[in-house]
C-alpha cells in the first residue's frame, strides 16, 4: 500500500474546498437559502503524518471528511490524492482509489451492522480488496484483530457484545482491512472513557508507525490534538483560520480565534478558572454570514476593514498561515491577559 505514502511526500492536498447545502422551503421545495458548511478549506497531509482538524460543533469538519471521501460532491475547490486530482473522478474511476482512504467514526456502533458478526463486517473490506479465498480471509481476519489488540475468539460475535472501546478497535480493524494509506478519524475517542481513550490513542500511534499511515484527525479536544498531531488546521464557520505545525500553533498562536480556543482548554497545567476565556457568545448560524471575516462578531480586535472584503490566507512563518489581515500584519496580540 504505502509506496504512495513515502515520508514527506504529500499524500493529500485540498485547495479551497467548498460545499453549500440547500435549504428548501414550501410546496415546491424551492431553495430559499444555503448552509455554507465549507467555504474555503485548504491543507496538506504528508505521508505518515497526522493533521489535526479542530473547531467548534457545526463548523464543517465532518463535511470536509465526507468531501474527501467523495461521499459528497464539492461545489468548488480541488482534492488531490497522491498527486492525482480526484475532484471530478466518476464512481468507476474512483473505484481503485476507494480503498486508499478510510474513515473511523466517533460512534463505531452506528457504523457496524448489528446483524453481522464482526468477522463478517471486517471480511467485507477484505473482499473489496480482492481477497475472497476462505483460508486467506480467515488468516487476515485473525491478523487484523490481533493488530488492534483483540482476541480472534471474538470473530463470531456481534457488535452489541462489545464495549465502546472494543467496537472502536473493530472499526479500526475494518478500516485497516483494505490497507489504506490515509485514515480519516472523525472524533474517534470523544465517546470513550479516559482509560479506554488512552488505549485507542496508543493503538492509533502504533499502527501509524508500523504501517506508515497518514491520519486526518478530527477533534474538538485540543489536549488530544496536541498529543497526537504534527500539524493543526483550525476551522471556524467553514474556513480554515490558522494552519501550522502543532508546536508553533500552541506556542505562537496568531489568529484571535485560535487564542480563544486555546484559552478554553480545560487542562491541569493552567491553574484557575479565571484564566479560561469566555469571549462572545456561540457562533451564530452560517446561513447569512456578513461580508468579510467570519469571526468578526466575536473578535475582540475587529475593525471596519474586517467587514469590507474577503480575508486572505496569509503566510506568517514557515508553513504557518493565518486568515486574519490584522494579526498577519502586526503579529499576535496579548488578547486575553
Amino acid at each position: 500500500m504505502n509506496e504512495i505514502n513515502s515520508r514527506n511526500s504529500t499524500i493529500l492536498q485540498v485547495e479551497d474546498l467548498k460545499k453549500y447545502f440547500p435549504i428548501r422551503r414550501g410546496f415546491f421545495q424551492r431553495v430559499t437559502s444555503w448552509v455554507r458548511a465549507v467555504e474555503k478549506v485548504s491543507f496538506i497531509i504528508k505521508g505518515g503524518k497526522t493533521l489535526g482538524l479542530v473547531g467548534e460543533s457545526g463548523c464543517g469538519k465532518t463535511t470536509v471528511a465526507r468531501l474527501i471521501l467523495k461521499l459528497l460532491e464539492a461545489d468548488g475547490g480541488k482534492i488531490i490524492f497522491a498527486g492525482q486530482d480526484i475532484t471530478d473522478l466518476s464512481e468507476a474511476e474512483m473505484k481503485p482509489l476507494r480503498k486508499e482512504i478510510q474513515i473511523i467514526f466517533q460512534d463505531p456502533y452506528g457504523s457496524l451492522n448489528p446483524r453481522m458478526t464482526i468477522g463478517q463486517a471486517i471480511a467485507e473490506g477484505l473482499k473489496a480488496a480482492g481477497i475472497d479465498n476462505r483460508s486467506e480471509t480467515q488468516q487476515r481476519l485473525e491478523k487484523l484483530l490481533k493488530m488492534v489488540g483483540m482476541s480472534p475468539a471474538g470473530i463470531d460475535r456481534f457488535p452489541h457484545e462489545f464495549s465502546g472501546g472494543q467496537r472502536q478497535r473493530i472499526g479500526i480493524a475494518r478500516a485497516l482491512s483494505v490497507e489504506p494509506s490515509l485514515i480519516i478519524c472523525d472524533e474517534p475517542v470523544s465517546a470513550l472513557d479516559v482509560s479506554i481513550q488512552a488505549q485507542i490513542i496508543n493503538l492509533l500511534k502504533d499502527l501509524q508507525e508500523q504501517l506508515n499511515l497518514s491520519y486526518l484527525f478530527i477533534s474538538h479536544d485540543l489536549n488530544v490534538v496536541g498529543y497526537l498531531c504534527d500539524r493543526v488546521a483550525v476551522m471556524y464557520k467553514g474556513h480554515i483560520m490558522e494552519y501550522s505545525p502543532a508546536d508553533e500553533l500552541f506556542d505562537n498562536p496568531v489568529h484571535p480565534y485560535t487564542h480563544l480556543l486555546l484559552s478554553a482548554i480545560p487542562d491541569s497545567e493552567r491553574s484557575d478558572i479565571s484564566d479560561m476565556n469566555t469571549l462572545g457568545d456561540e457562533p451564530a448560524n452560517t446561513l447569512n454570514p456578513p461580508a468579510g471575516c467570519s469571526f468578526q462578531d466575536r473578535c475582540p480586535i475587529s475593525e471596519d476593514r474586517c467587514a469590507q472584503s474577503e480575508i486572505n490566507f496569509e503566510k506568517v512563518g514557515e508553513d504557518h498561515l493565518v486568515r486574519c489581515w490584522k494579526t498577519a500584519k502586526h503579529g499576535s496580540y496579548q488578547f486575553f491577559s
Binding site: S195, I201, Y227, A246
Partner: peptide, 24 residues
C-alpha cells in the same frame, strides 16, 4: 495515578500514554 498518567496532552507528545488495562 493511572487516570492522570493516561490523559493525553501536548507535553506528553512522543511519550507513550499510560493505559489502564481492561475495562470498568
Amino acid at each position: 495515578q493511572a487516570l492522570l498518567a493516561s490523559l493525553p496532552n501536548r507535553e506528553k507528545r512522543g511519550q507513550r500514554l499510560y493505559s489502564i488495562p481492561g475495562t470498568v
